[in-house]
Computed example of a mutant assay.
Amino acid sequence: MTRGFDLRARLTDRDSRGLRRGLSSIETVGERSRVVDSYEQCSSSDEQLVFASNNYLGLADDERVRRAGARAAEAIGTGAGASRLVTGDTPAHHALERDLAATKQSERALVFSSGYAANVGTITALTPDVVFSDAFNHASIIDGCRLSDAEVVVYDHCDATSLEKAMSERARDRIDESWLVVTDSVFSMDGDVAPLTALCDTAERYGAWMMVDEAHATGVFKAGGGIVQREGLSDRVHIQLGTLSKALAAQGGYVAGHEALIEYLLNTARSFVFSTGLAPPAAGAAREALSIARDGTRREQLWNNVERLRAGLESLGFDVLGETHILPVLIGDRSDAVEFADQLREVGIIAPAIRPPTVPNGTSRIRVAPMATHTTRDIEHCIAAFETAGRECAIV
């Protein structure tokens, strides 16, 4: 008798279903890099253009951001050393939180060790009776809902009418429940945007709280904020959440909201209370990146690249989803998407295939994410690579 775990069998099963993945490292985190398939040698002597990173503003290797991280390490240390409720609270954390609160137009902010920890910690700390969750929400939101023990009602993706219907049916015989509506603002696999104004209208009609995850929007939209700021909804969204690891080029997550919310979370969110504080260099780097994002020049460069790349891909006949800086190019079949990604890599573009179960069956895609630091020549190279791969794979 064995009560252990047959992990080799599980891996074999993943292989048979085309779900097994491996690590393929890159040498640098900028807009171009060599790919390292092993730690001893590179698979190619040539640099490849990276069109798959969430480093949207190209700040992860920016010298100003590097220096800010180094200054924090020199002044404070490389790690916080303990939970922030013990001895891990530093000036770097407070300076970043002040800037985040100002950017998100909220009373206060709190940084966590990751965006995942921020989502899980916030939802579980609130202990809602019911969570109304968008069908395409991020895994960290889904896991937060599971761990909260709340009843979860999934409404149709980006559909305020579906949310209204679910709330109306629930409200007939449920009076004394706490309700939380949770949605991403920009959805990472589809590049579309939640109808936040309509969702806020619906939530307010039923007295529910609104929580918006701005992971893929923070730093990219109005004044370095997100969709909440672009739509002028800062005073209607109770909980604004996001990451520091994408456009802000560091590590960690944050929650922004009113004073009582933040004070409550720092006392009750287990992923905050029982985790070592965010590393001071990450806090210093994120603060500098936020300052650069608020300035606007990098954001303008990003959106110019997005516009050129979308127009070029669509002119070739590709179906490009979404309306944001994330450009999912629909391929359809899983194996076709994998072959397409391999063809792109052959001609110098890193843009892996996204396939089930990450996306629904029949909607496998290449998720293209330009950076602000890509040049016009880089964008043209990407378009030409898609044309070549499209011919090789008989997609266009």
Rank of each mutant, 00 (worst) to 15 (best):
S291Y: 13
Y116W: 09
V181L: 00
T161I: 04
F187N: 10
L180M: 05
E169Q: 06
N55S: 04
F136Q: 09
G191L: 10
Q251F: 12
V193K: 05
T202N: 04
Q240S: 00
C382W: 02
D46E: 13
R355I: 14
I262Q: 12
S113V: 15
D213W: 02
S43D: 00
W179H: 12
I227A: 05
V359I: 13
A215M: 14
A389R: 03
A166E: 03
R17E: 06
R21E: 07
I142W: 01
A75K: 04
E97L: 08
T2H: 12
Q41I: 05
W179T: 13
L302R: 01
E40F: 01
H94P: 10
A256Y: 05
Y254H: 01
Q343H: 11
A92K: 06
A384G: 05
R377V: 14
G390S: 08
T363L: 13
G277T: 12
T373K: 03
A217V: 01
F340P: 03
W303H: 11
T197Y: 10
A215E: 15
A282W: 09
V368E: 09
K104G: 14
L330I: 12
A289Y: 09
Y264A: 08
L163D: 01
P352M: 01
R287G: 13
V153C: 09
V29K: 10
T268S: 06
F274G: 07
R308S: 13
G332C: 02
A117K: 09
D184Y: 10
A68P: 15
L233P: 07
A385T: 02
R32C: 06
I175Q: 10
A351Q: 07
S188D: 00
P370W: 03
A247D: 01
K246R: 05
A203H: 15
V152P: 15
L147N: 12
T183Y: 05
N267A: 08
I292G: 06
L248F: 07
A223M: 13
D61L: 15
S114C: 15
L110H: 01
K246A: 00
G362A: 01
K246T: 04
S44G: 14
L330T: 14
V255A: 03
Y39W: 01
E323D: 13
H258M: 07
P370R: 04
A353T: 00
G242C: 11
E74Q: 02
Q48L: 08
G277S: 11
S178A: 13
D6Y: 03
T297A: 14
F51W: 09
A68K: 10
C200G: 13
N267Q: 09
A72K: 08
I331C: 15
A249W: 04
A341I: 03
A282S: 13
A208F: 06
I175F: 14
G79N: 06
R17Q: 06
V154K: 11
E380P: 15
L266R: 07
M1Q: 14
R14M: 06
S168P: 07
Q48H: 05
E339R: 15
T268K: 02
